[in-house]
Design a protein around this nucleic acid. Structure first.
Lengths: 173, 173
DNA sequence: TATTGTTATACTCTATAACTATA
DNA sequence: TATAGTTATAGAGTATAACAATA
């Protein structure tokens, strides 16, 4: 890769860090690509749509507020509204105002939505297995997962994305 | 995450694998997001554009063929043409037909392009350092990089993306 | 006044197919 | 006939801002 440009000693990344960074970017990109392709072909779903459905499938009663979904799926609010609209049109989820808080909208997976997740899941998992884990030993997975978990926690300590735009906007004008 | 839905024993991912997978997706996404944001703010560059410039900066004489760029940057040919067009408009690269093979186009970084990379690089590396490596020990980085490298090699053994569309199309019709 | 969500809109990016030109 | 690249075009996705409604 562009090692010479980036591993300038001044810049502050060792050759080893650099290699890990590039590998992470490439692996993440390739995995994303493969998984996306499968979900699209097998269920006509984008990865984001799959995430929404899967999260709902896991939630108690298959229900979550829009805000809760947005926090997990990384989206802007309008982006989530857009995606949710697509899923509603396909009968995979429903939206209804919350009884508790009339401002909120409760999203619920339909049976069709659950069925689609179930349909797509085996192939999804298979791809992950074959692409990501096939070349790794059990110990590798343990070590890899541990480090990633640590990084994730560290990153989470930093600002959340969906919160910033709205909150920051109001101050700036 | 959607553990219940995905960790179905039938499906074939252990809880540990699942955790690693989710962590990878989240870390990759967060890192991408942060880095993208910085490149955009500091240099008005998308990550892809930055990759193109950085790869050229590293190449001998700062020159590469379009095809070589496409292979590395994961793009469809038309997508690369589009991005290259943007960079040409900004004076960051130039395009010229290859003397060797008149079909080919040689892309070259301009001084302005090199300057922009140099301008953006410190901040870019800083983000990676702070977000990705800050919570890791030297040993962590070593282990992490080793596993990622193995995965990457494994993934590379699988089909390349930019090659498929064109090659597959001709057979299908 | 703050929060939840939608809508309108504009823009970026990507992919497909058709096309040109060279090998 | 195969390869390199461009163009036209259409579609998906995203972000911003303005908006309505509830707390």
């Amino acid at each position: 890769m562009y090692d010479r440009a980036v591993s300038d000693p001044e810049a502050g990344l060792s050759a080893e860090q650099l290699g890990a960074y590039f590998a992470l970017v490439e692996v993440g990109s390739l995995l994303q690509y493969a998984v996306d392709e499968h979900l699209r072909a097998d269920g006509d779903l984008s990865y984001v749509q799959f995430q929404i459905l899967a999260r709902l499938t896991d939630a108690p009663d298959g229900r979550l507020r829009m805000t809760d979904l947005a926090d997990g799926v990384v989206y802007s609010r309008s982006g989530l509204t857009y995606q949710a609209g697509l899923l509603v049109n396909r009968g995979l989820i429903t939206r209804a105002p919350s009884p508790d808080d009339e401002r909120s909208v409760i999203v619920t997976v339909t049976d069709a939505g659950r069925a689609l997740v179930a349909h797509v899941l085996p192939g999804h998992v298979e791809r992950v297995q074959q692409l990501l884990f096939a070349p790794l030993s059990g110990d590798d997975v343990t070590a890899f997962g541990a480090v990633l978990g640590r990084i994730r926690e560290h990153m989470r300590a930093v600002p959340p994305r969906s919160a910033k735009p709205r909150a920051a906007r109001r101050k700036a004008g």
